[in-house]
Write a protein that binds this DNA or RNA. Structure first.
Length: 566
RNA sequence: UGGGGAUUAGUCCAGUGGUAGGACGCCUGACUCUGGAUCAGGAAGCGGAGGUUCGAACCCUCCAUCCCCAGCCA
């Protein structure tokens, strides 16, 4: 597996490279990640984080700021400020001293607004929100100028100062940029840049009752921080003329906005609105539910920062509106965990096997390799005795063709232990359910091979019944059955696409004794099953709960599926 | 039918005038005490039509399709 070249290029890095060549910014590269603290970060944000911090890190002296875009006190909260910082750090990025808040600039932003008014470039409008909307025109028709558009500078200044002083109710007035009501770009039809909001801000308290709008605040925040490359998503492309207008009219540092496509993933949802809907509707257990594409959800699921970064490298940066296959994310975590996760044997759906010719009351230990990919991880002892559990799915009374596992009369290997042959199938007389297998073992095969060198096709994982520990395991699958994922933002109906099998809780799993003390957050490969992570929320000392991060590739499942289909 | 963007294998990303390349996924085979991993091989693509050129994914023209914009959200 090749990891992407760290110098791998994209159109944004090409622009940065070119700007360096032409000395556009005196050799500086300063980016920023500007989340609004109104929700948890998700894998789509990770793309932006990796881009912004990544680009900055590729140049000497390059820096990336973390700036909270906290201009709307109605929707924002410190809870999110904390989780966002935790998530960015966990992903492996460091903003150093460069932690900022748009609210830090409220004073400066206010001064700039007065300057615009003084120069006749902004005015106080007293139309209602409804009226402003009607005056804006439509996509194909120009807007109409507000009757307040030609108020004198003096009157505008007076009104704006009184807005700031709290003399008016919410909605009574707004400050608008005076641009062009006939512009084909709706964002340029005298956009609102300040509105009255008598709300307590999580950082500035009640210092302000007017708050700047995104376009105005963001452009100036970038400029104040002397951001060179302001990277944002495609939907802001139409806003760039306003971004440029603001910086040019105020004659301040000219940051450059560049837009790239946001991330969409199959089989999940990505918009904050929908994520919030899942949380509030209790379709998931919270923002960090392991099924959520949030950073905290992926973390709890068992994903590593490295895997997420590798994923972001793999998907690249472009301007095409696309949907990345979830299989790529899964590939990235498998690839890493294959290298790093200790192997362990765990039976998810136990079927008891009694080895009749194994002496009763005795036991022995076998050596098991902790990670065949990394010999330095050493070996461990696994206890064995007369009764073991195997995976129910590893036995078929009537095996289909190419089924190499256990069946009546068949011989298989118990990994690291010995060969067993199935002699008898014990069923519940009522239900007909297989409840136990009577087997014999070949004493010659102890250690995993026989002197006669005969081959067995199947090797099963197992656990000694007398030594195993019962744990809870949670099997997670895609959130949505629909691979189209989030792409249809209008379908109000995505709830009906939720995968009913996205979570299966197994409470009777039997695992090797050593696993009982697994540290919360620790990751394992359950051999032949997948990668699992001890849940950091619900695990108790001595009673871990395991989340399935991702299953192993399962070629037998594919064969069987093909057989059933054909 | 106003404006802004985008069209390269099933998917994502490179390729900016000289034999279309990588990754994921998929298929074959080898190997294997994980039907894992690994290794080897394979199928699969420039939206369309014109034009410029010795030569076009790339330049020009037209067409088509998809995405975004009418918050006092970001």
């Amino acid at each position: 597996m090749t990891t992407p070249d760290s110098t791998s290029s994209d159109f944004i890095r090409n622009i940065v490279e070119e700007d360096l060549k032409t000395d556009k910014y005196q050799g500086r590269v300063v980016t920023r990640f500007p989340p609004e603290p109104n929700g948890y970060l998700h894998i789509g944000h990770a793309k932006s984080i990796c881009l912004n911090f990544g680009v900055a890190s590729e140049y000497p002296g390059g820096i990336c700021h973390l700036r909270f875009d906290d201009t709307n006190p109605l929707r924002e909260d410190v809870e999110y400020i904390n989780s966002i910082q935790e998530d960015v750090q966990w992903l492996g990025f460091d903003w150093g001293q460069h932690l900022y808040y748009a609210s830090d600039y409220f004073g400066a932003l206010y001064e700039f607004a007065e300057k615009l008014i003084l120069e006749g470039k902004a005015y106080v409008d007293s139309l209602t929100a409804d009226q402003i909307r009607n005056y804006r025109g439509t996509l194909t028709e120009p807007g109409k100028e507000s009757p307040y558009r030609d108020r004198s500078v003096k009157e505008n200044l007076d009104l704006f100062r009184r807005m700031r002083a709290g003399e008016f109710d919410d909605g009574a007035h707004v400050l608008r940029a005076r641009i062009d009501m006939a512009s084909p770009n709706l964002n340029m039809r005298d956009p609102t840049i300040y509105r009255i909001r008598r709300a307590t801000h999580h950082r500035t308290g009640d210092d302000w009752c007017i708050y700047p709008m995104y376009d105005y605040a963001h452009a100036l925040s970038d400029s104040i921080e002397k951001i060179t490359h302001s990277l944002c998503t495609l939907e802001f492309e139409d806003h760039r003329p306003l971004y440029d207008w603001t910086l040019e009219e105020l004659d301040v540092y000219r940051s450059q906005q560049i837009e790239f496509a946001r991330l969409n993933l199959t089989n999940t949802v990505m918009s904050k609105r929908r994520l919030l809907q899942l949380v509030e509707g209790s379709y998931v257990s919270g923002w960090d539910d392991p099924r959520m594409p949030t950073i905290s959800g992926l973390r709890r699921r068992g994903y590593t920062p490295e895997a997420i970064r590798t994923f972001c490298d793999h998907i690249g940066i472009s301007k095409r509106d696309t949907v990345v296959n979830m299989a790529l994310l899964e590939h990235c975590i498998r690839e890493e965990l294959n290298r790093s996760a200790p192997r362990v044997m765990a039976i998810l759906d136990p079927l008891k096997v009694i080895i009749d010719n194994y002496p009763e009351g005795t036991e022995q230990e076998f050596d098991a390799v902790n990670n065949p990919e990394d010999p330095s991880m050493g070996n461990r002892k696994v206890p064995f005795s007369r009764e073991v559990y195997i995976e129910r799915d590893d036995f078929r009374e009537d095996p289909p063709s190419r089924f190499f596992r256990l069946a009546p009369g068949r011989e298989v290997r118990l990994r690291y232990a010995c060969y067993i042959t199935c002699r008898e199938v014990v069923k519940d007389p009522q239900t007909g359910e297989v409840i136990e297998l009577r087997c014999t073992y070949d004493p010659e095969s102890v250690g995993g091979s026989t002197p006669d060198g005969r081959r067995v096709r199947g090797t099963l994982h197992w656990v000694s019944a007398a030594h195993s520990r019962q744990v809870e395991v949670r099997l997670y699958d895609h959130l949505l059955v629909n691979p189209e994922g989030d792409s249809d933002e209008d379908s109000r109906d995505f709830i009906s696409l939720l995968n009913p099998d996205s979570l299966k809780v197994l409470t009777n799993c039997q695992v090797e004794p050593g696993l009982a003390n697994a540290e919360p957050g620790s990751r394992f490969q359950f051999e032949r099953q997948g990668y699992f992570c001890a849940d950091s929320r619900d695990s108790m000392p001595g009673a871990p709960v395991f989340n399935r991060t991702v299953s192993l590739r399962d070629s037998w499942a594919r064969i069987e599926q093909a057989q059933n289909a054909g």
